[in-house]
Design a protein around this nucleic acid. Structure first.
Lengths: 246, 246
DNA sequence: GGGGAGAGATGCCGC
DNA sequence: GCGGCATTTCTCCCC
């Protein structure tokens, strides 16, 4: 009944193509958790690196997946027609039983390009290093080399009085976890430099901060600087223009 | 040149079907961040809820996406043929320029079923409520109703001496964040009940714990209980058997 | 491989 | 919408 579609899938897997399947199916997963997805229409995607995705007709995330390097085979027996997948290192398994295959399509895809992103937390700290005045007058960040030596601290320098300043950047709203992160960093620096914690200035730099976080921040004697990640809003306006251009 | 494929896309969008496109394309995104993905072969998936996914030929995650409720339209001008997507509430935009469309497929998908998962953190705390002896002899969890009233504490009860016990469950390896979570809960309970923090027992329950976390845990006077989420390994063995059955 | 941290994290639930 | 938290988070980078 589905011989033709199964043959297409096998041939495409053999040729290492990307395979797209629309099918009425049920799915079992056994790995870090166990899951069962009852019968329904789904899109199944097998990529050339052997990643397997099962997508329901709604939502961003796959409902089931297997990572790259998975082995796939088709098994036909009395219980039905299955795509059986196994990942040797992840030690997990997925079984898909096909009740009906709506269509199969495959294609060899070539894509060596990577995405370029602007507006990340790293861009924020770069911006502060390039324009220390954004923090306050007289703020001097240490060199980028020293930055790494103390671990994962976003920005690290001295104020106009020579006091050590530790800054934790968040690209969006800072929450209490950002404050406890900052506290941990200040503690780390205090110990490694032999300075009392209260003599180190800790700051959160972000476009906004939650009420809880603000309270925690001030309770611990830390400070807040409102900084918007580079081109966060400006580019948004630009987009509107750019969209209009078309 | 791509008239036929464009017509297929438009018709499928009109009919609210799930649309699959394999295409050589470049992608711009403007939203919380900005991104640009240079020309390459990708799979584009538009779901019936108007979710848009762009997948490269490798990896589990989409390289670009738009959430459900996005508006999509095809725009053809001197600069090329575009799928232009806009989300009113997310206030973000995506533009895909098609250089070449390898194929278009669409289908109306029906799927009302939800996934059933076993082995989550919630299952762990359920297991402990059902079998308090897993923690220690004499441990008595409070009722599930009280559980919510103190917030997001996984398990909450008293030991054989009537001391309050707060347990944070992790389905896999517990790290230092789990310990600081536990510390916060103990602090919360101490304040709300007017008990000194040192008179409350805090515990991490997980199949494993990192060295750092263990150190932090003991420094703060907390305890560790090794608990494996229900059927974490047993079912894994079962699977092997079950897989053999086919 | 462990450990720490970001991510356009997403998604869920509760207020 | 914010807030807190789990997720088969994934991914990257460093030790």
């Amino acid at each position: 009944m589905m011989e033709n579609e199964i043959a297409q899938i096998l041939a495409a897997l053999e040729r290492n193509e990307t395979v797209l399947i629309a099918a009425l199916c049920e799915v079992w997963y056994f790995g870090k958790v166990e899951s069962y997805l009852p019968l329904g229409d789904r899109i199944i995607l097998v990529k050339s690196d052997k990643t397997l995705l099962v997508h329901q007709p709604t939502g961003v995330n796959p409902i089931n997946y297997m990572k790259d390097g998975t082995e796939h085979r088709i098994v036909e027996d009395a219980k039905g027609i299955f795509l059986k997948s196994h990942h040797q290192f992840q030690k997990d398994y997925m079984d898909i039983r096909f009740e009906q295959i709506h269509f199969v399509k495959s294609h060899g895809l070539e894509d060596g390009n990577k995405i370029q992103v602007q507006g990340s937390e790293a861009d924020m700290s770069d911006m502060i290093y390039a324009n220390p005045g954004l923090i306050e007058q007289g703020f001097k960040p240490f060199s980028r080399e020293e930055h790494t030596q103390f671990g994962f601290i976003d920005v690290f320098g001295t104020d106009k009085n020579g006091k050590v300043v530790v800054i934790e950047c968040k690209r969006d709203m800072a929450d209490f976890k950002a404050v406890s992160q900052l506290h941990r960093y200040v503690h780390k620096i205090a110990r490694s430099k032999g300075i009392p914690e209260k003599n180190i200035r800790g700051m959160i730099a972000s476009p906004r901060i939650s009420e809880n976080a603000k309270t925690m921040l001030y309770e611990q004697g830390f400070e807040y600087v409102m900084i918007v990640p580079p081109k966060y809003l400006e580019k948004y306006d630009t987009n509107q223009k750019r969209l209009g251009e078309f």
